[in-house]
Every structure is written in C-alpha cells, then in structure tokens.
Design a protein around this nucleic acid. Structure first.
Lengths: 331, 331
DNA sequence: TTTCACATGTCAACCCATTGACATAAACTA
DNA sequence: TAGTTTATGTCAATGGGTTGACATGTGAAA
C-alpha cells in the first residue's frame, strides 16, 4: 500500500542507497539525481518510515508525558508548553492521562517503555517502585518520584508564605488553608508548610483542611462547607489551587458571604483560563511556561548524557498576582 | 543496553522463537517454559520493542491528535476523553498543538505520517489541501476539512437557537452575538446561523461581532469594548464560547453593569473548568465526552475498514444549562 | 598521464520481533 | 503399535530504512 524506499528508487531510476543518501544528505549526489528522487517522493506521496529509522538508530525522538489530566487547566497549559517546545526540537509526545491512579500510571510506564520513548516527563503523583527500575531519563514536575529523579517545581514554600502573608496583611484574622490530600511528599505540600510557618510567625494557629481527592472538584464542595460550618468567622482562605478557590467563591455566594469584604481568598496556579474566568481572584502564579522549558531542558540533557547530578531539584520563582478590584454584582 | 528477545532466550535457555511464542501466546508452550521465560523477562526488566512489532505488522496502534491547544479547557477536556478511550482500547496518542497555525498543522501531518499513525483526529481548523492527499483514516471534530472526511460536531445550529431563545425569553431587547473569526465553513459558524435565524424569527435584527483571532482572549477584550461602546443598551449577549462570556463579564464588571439585571450572557461549551469557575454562567453544554466517544468510534471503524459512508456528519445534541442564581458580590 | 573529487551502484549486515515451514522428540491415546 | 497431541528447535524471510565496504566510472586538475 504505502510506498517504500524501493518504490521511490524504481520510479526515480536509481538505487535504494541513492534514495537513502538523498534523504540523509550523505555522500555525493548530483543535483539532477536529487531532483529526480524528490520528484518521485512527491509523486508517490512518500514519507520515510520513521519507525524503521528509529529501530536502526535506537533513538525515537519520542517523549512520554504522564499527567493526571489535560482537562485541568494547569496541566493543560503545562502540557501545551511542553509539547510546543518538544515539537520545535523534533521530539514527539505520547500523551498519558493517569488521573492519579496508580494502576493507570503503571501501565502507561510499561507502554512507554515498549514504545521506546527516549525519556519521560511525569507530573503524576504516585511514588511507584517501578520508577527505580526504569532505565530511562525521567524528569518529574512537582513530584518526588524517587531519590535520583530530578524535580522541577515552583517555589511552593514561598508561595504558601506569600499567600498567607497577603491574607495577614489584608487584615484577615481567621485564616484557613485547604489543600489536596497530603499523600506522599510532593513539593506542593510545601505550600502548606509555607502557610503554617507564616501563621506561626504571626502568632496564629494554622488550620489545614485536606480534600479527600484531588482533581475531583465535586467532592471538594463538602470540605468547603465544613470549613464554613466549623469556622463561621473565617475571613481568609488560602486554597492550594485556583479551582478550589473557585469552589470557595461559589459556596460563599450561596451563603451570602461578601467577597472581599467578609472573606478574602488566595488561590494557586494562575493559569490563563482561570485568570480569564476569575480576574478578581488573587493567586500565586506558577511560572508554567518556564517550568515546561526547564523540564524539557533537563530531560534532553539527561537523554544526551550531559546531565550533571548537582541540580536535582529545580525551583522556579512564583509571583503573587493580585486580583482586579472594582465592584460588580453577579447573581 | 536494552535487552532483546535473544537475551531473554539465552537467560531462559530456550530459543528466541519460544520466547516469541510465549509473548504472543501462539503454538504449544509448557507451563514450565512459560514460567522460565517470564522469569527471565522480569529479571532483565524486558519490554518487547513495540516498534519492531509495529514494523512487521504494519499497524502501530498510534493515533494522532491535532488540536489548537490543550490549554483551552474545551480542547483539554475533549483530548482527555479521547486519550482515555483510546488507551482503554490499546491505542496510543501523539499530541499535536497546532495553535490553528497552518504551517504547524502541515508539519504535524507530515510527522504523523512518517510515524505511521493508524489514524488522525483533527480539531484544528485549517482546510489544508494536504487533507485530500492523505491516505489515512481521519475524523474531524467540529471542522469541515474536506468532503470525504467525517465530522463529529455538536448541534451548533440548535445551540445558537436555544441560546438566543433563552435571551429572548428572559426579556432581552438588544441581543448581540460575538463569534470567532468566520474563516471557513466550520460547523461552529452554525451557532451564528442559529442566532440569526432565531433573531429574525422574533423580528429582531441580528448583530454579530467577529473576533480577530480565536483562542487569544486578550485580543477579544477590544471587541467586547466595542460592543458595549456601540450598543449602550445591549442587554443580552450570546458568546460563541465560555471564555468570551467570561471576558464579557469582566468588562461588564469594569463598567458597573449589573448581571443579570442589566445584562444577560449565554456562553458555549460548558466545560467542567468553566462550570467550577463560573457556575452562574448560562451556557450551551457540548456533550464533550460523547463527542470524544463518537470520534474514536468512527475513526476505529475507518481503521478497520468497517466505515459506512452514509453518516458523514454526526451531530450530537446539546443542552442549555442555566447558571445558578443567588446573588453575591465579588470585587 | 596520473590523480582525485564526484557520482552512483551492489551487497550484506543491522535494528528487533514475527511467522511459517519444517524437523525432532517425548508423551498420550486408540 | 501406529497415530496424534504436545513441546521445542532451527532457519529464513519479512517489515523499511541505514550504513559501511567496495567497485566502477566520469571528468577535471596537476
């Protein structure tokens, strides 16, 4: 069905080797022959079989991406940037949505290895034993997977501090933190540490609520309700991501709590989507594009064997973005 | 470096053919041999090279996805579902973010062909001549690519009608429509047709504003301002997607326009992300998961050669989702 | 006239797994 | 005991492209 190099050779009346030489720009080829070959390729709508080349070269230019879900705007934007950078460098992306389920993650890892990816970027959270066995360049984003896998993260500790400080500076007296499930040691838990440190420094008692499941925001409403029920006087909430912050807004709206007069909220992530939807949300903006760049850069260095062990944890600076002010009424 | 089938054979003290028989469950194998082979595979951390198998079988189980960007929640969620379904069927996804740029789309198409994908699902909008030449199963989502490429879309015409009707029913007197660039014949333009039909039916004059660029919402603010400036008495806007609706909300907030008292807005898409962020937004919900299912189903049928030409355009029903009411103040 | 850059061809090995053909042999079964 | 089922091995071809070795030939420069 599909033409191969021999078909091109036949049509261009040259040898397969010559076609290969044209394709790879090796050895001597006359302009005339080159044209003839190119013409034949166009005529037959020929594309060299990259699988065969990869097989020979032991190098696929495939990169596997394991993230919870592209549906979440933070991951969606991160993945967009990663793919974009990779594409510009000739690398191709296998997309895997793990939904933070260990079994899925496990089978994706196997799939990626079977398909000979050159490396993997992981933003999924399971600390699978598998990762120790994989003999493949891996970079994690915002996750500690194993001791020897480099991690790219935003400055979560500082983010937690800044968020809390902003609430304190804006006169909040009862500040609660809502975070995802504490699970394993993810850098994102440092947001909580930052919150707790800053609270203690201000002589307050930190109170953190943990969500039962991350990413499933419908289950998060219940926790938010608890916060309001248990702390009728809460006037500041630091949410560990923007969609939790959005959920807080909704619940506040239902309860007739005025924002920001009665309650101030700081979110986390600062994706474009959320900034379009909730421009009045104050949030800690993660440098998403820079994280993508750094992760790809480190991965490619590992792939090329130029990775120096020194910088195993790469922390990028965050920024607090104040929400727009100006009053308006939505119902 | 990586072990191959011969390494396994050597360690398990069998022939490579026997290993292959174990892997593919062909012919007769004793339990004892099977165990020995499996043990060897575990020991060497062996994964069969899927590239080699694909090369032989002329079937990769790769599917290419070309969409503008995973960063947009609609595409992010759509891609999530597509990947999810494909993964459950043993297909793997090559992710391509075209940003609606024809040059990128073109080079992705070439890349996918070189990498021997079994099929492509396209949600990018360029009507490239290339598509006629590609000798590969393709399915489009919400885009007419060429006459013989099946399209999966939501019922845009009805969506436009429903949205407009809702605004009319809620007493709006001056209703404007904001849509993406008209470009080529995309099914999404039928939202506009629906709006115009419904307006005419109600004896009103339809007014549609076109955005200069889709997906870049920063440029969309200017258009929204124009709408407000040119139509001080506008009290209803049908936005062709939710993020445009969000932009309208923001601008309204800046101008002190009360929502919904003075202005009612209906969006389009109804992604989870936007429903979390803007639960009070009335919108036309596209059946994202069903669209993903249908697209994959049609593509796989084409891949397997079971596709019947009859149903070339598959239209799935939409639903108007009313925003939550209840007043609250954000600033 | 010699030498060398240029141009192309032939051939085989290689990457890794699959598969069909064929051989061999042990263990059942009729 | 003959015939069948089970179990495994050997071998070569296949898929598509790459590459190194080597051969051959032309034309131009030294």
């Amino acid at each position: 069905m599909k033409p191969n190099i021999k078909d091109i050779a036949r049509l261009a009346e040259v040898s397969p080797t010559t076609v290969s030489r044209v394709l790879n720009n090796r050895g001597y080829i006359s302009k005339q022959t080159r044209d003839k070959v190119n013409q034949a390729m166009r005529e037959l709508n020929y594309y060299p079989n990259e699988l065969a080349r990869s097989l020979y070269h032991q190098h696929t230019y495939f990169i596997g991406l394991i993230f919870p879900t592209t549906g979440n705007p933070f991951f969606g934007e991160l993945i967009f940037h990663i793919e974009n950078i990779c594409a510009s460098l000739g690398y191709k992306i296998f997309l895997c949505n793990s939904l933070d389920r260990a079994d899925k993650e496990q089978s994706y890892l196997e799939m990626l290895q079977r398909n000979q990816v050159d490396g993997i970027i992981v933003g999924a959270h399971n600390r699978l034993p598998e990762y120790k066995k994989i003999n493949l360049p891996i970079v994690a984003i915002d996750r500690y997977l194993s001791d020897d896998i480099p991690v790219v993260a935003s400055d979560n500790l500082n983010g937690g501090k800044l968020a809390t400080k902003w609430l304190l500076d804006h006169g909040c007296r009862e500040i609660i933190h809502i975070n995802g499930p504490r699970e394993l040691e993810t850098p994102a838990n440092k947001r909580r540490d930052g919150y707790e440190q800053m609270m203690k420094k201000a002589g307050r008692t930190p109170v953190t609520y943990e969500l039962p499941e991350s990413l499933i925001y419908s289950t998060c409403v219940e926790t938010v309700r608890q916060v309001f029920n248990n702390h009728p006087k809460v006037d500041g909430i630091f949410a560990s991501d923007d969609l939790i912050a959005a959920t807080i807004f909704s619940e506040a709206r239902k309860r007739g709590i005025m924002i920001p007069d009665e309650l101030k909220v700081v979110g986390y992530d600062g994706t474009e989507t959320v900034r379009i939807c909730l421009p009045y949300l104050t949030t800690i903006r993660q440098p998403i594009k820079e994280m993508a760049e750094k992760a790809v850069q480190v991965l490619l260095r590992k792939i090329k064997g130029q990775f120096e062990e020194e910088n195993r944890e790469i922390i990028l600076p965050i920024r607090l973005v104040e929400g727009e002010t100006g009053r308006s009424i939505h119902s």
